[in-house]
Design a protein around this nucleic acid. Sequence first.
DNA 1: CACTATTGGCTAATGGGGTTAGCCTTATAG
DNA 2: CTATAAGGCTAACCCCATTAGCCAATAGTG
Lengths: 198, 198
Amino acid sequence: MPRAGLALPAVITAGAELADEVGLPHLTMALLAERVGVRTPSLYKHVESLDALRRGIGVQALREFGEAMSRAAVGRSGPDAVRAIADAYRRWARDHPGRYAATLRAPAADGADEEYRRVSDDVVHILFDVLAGLDLPDPNAVDAARALRSALHGFVTIEAAGGFGLPRDVDRSYRFLVDTLVAGLRHGTDTRDGTAPR
Amino acid sequence: MPRAGLALPAVITAGAELADEVGLPHLTMALLAERVGVRTPSLYKHVESLDALRRGIGVQALREFGEAMSRAAVGRSGPDAVRAIADAYRRWARDHPGRYAATLRAPAADGADEEYRRVSDDVVHILFDVLAGLDLPDPNAVDAARALRSALHGFVTIEAAGGFGLPRDVDRSYRFLVDTLVAGLRHGTDTRDGTAPR
DNA sequence: CACTATTGGCTAATGGGGTTAGCCTTATAG
DNA sequence: CTATAAGGCTAACCCCATTAGCCAATAGTG
């Protein structure tokens, strides 16, 4: 019954581009409205709220992000694949800072965000799979995936915030991080108590 | 000449507490004013702007954070010290989410933020020092410090955002991350080309 | 102890951002 | 061709940051 729906996904995409340009915290309904050539209140015919917009950007971004990483892994295996994925991870985050920031979201109330959790899991599975090709001595792949994800996310975030003193050497540091982690995973942790940190 | 100065640092501290309670993004001048029992505009007699408040919280937080980590390291050395610091890092970040978030700041224009850079460097030096006691085969301590910092920050951030699916096992995953990284550092990366990632 | 400069609080006001309500036009389905 | 609903608009509200300008209390100073 309705008319041509050109807006819904287009608005999200425009929002994502804007977020990349001005930073997610500076993404504003007013700014987006101007960008798409509409008065601010009109946006609410397409998006429920600013928060919903951010969520939409996050979901869309996770999809694109996952695709980019998958693409980077094809035809590679082992440590080479891990490195390729790590590079793709960092490059994508740098090229899409607003989208990347939208990727991390507070836990949406009571599982309301079914879709979000799904795409998020998809991305984690990519890490999971690439680590599976590493013949890890330690069977706990969940821990390994979390470790890799933490390392990549942390590095990329600190870099984006300008947290590393000197701008030079950052590429090498990233390579070092990835290689060190892979080396650690392959040798296994020589700790044998399963005690949680106090 | 002025009168008793009870406000300046107290306001920052109150702001830090509030940030921990409601989250840094929800920290507002109005809220803080209410908290300290004053009308909103009065805050501007103590703080230049909301952004300055956040910066102040960040600097103060970095000091406290550094102290907590130093305290955790005394009497320990080697991998044990690294583990202790890692635990202290995570615990502090969990106990002070608002302060921790304030810790990461965009690069303040042109070196305007001398003080910030200093306390930030202090914290990095702690990591630096604890890694020095590890007898690393690879002399590049800067890379090692960045790696450790990235890993810890990434883990803590993802955890705070509720990014890990299941809440259980997180303690073990953290331990795994730290041990894996230490193992990797000790064995050295078996990569020998210094080429930056493409 | 009185005097005065200054601090630290207040009210009023401005501008911007999110959001809602209600109107009106226009394309589309029938 | 026409009824309908999507999609745009203006007006209005509330919350927040920030500035201007006023006033009381306080702390040095004589």
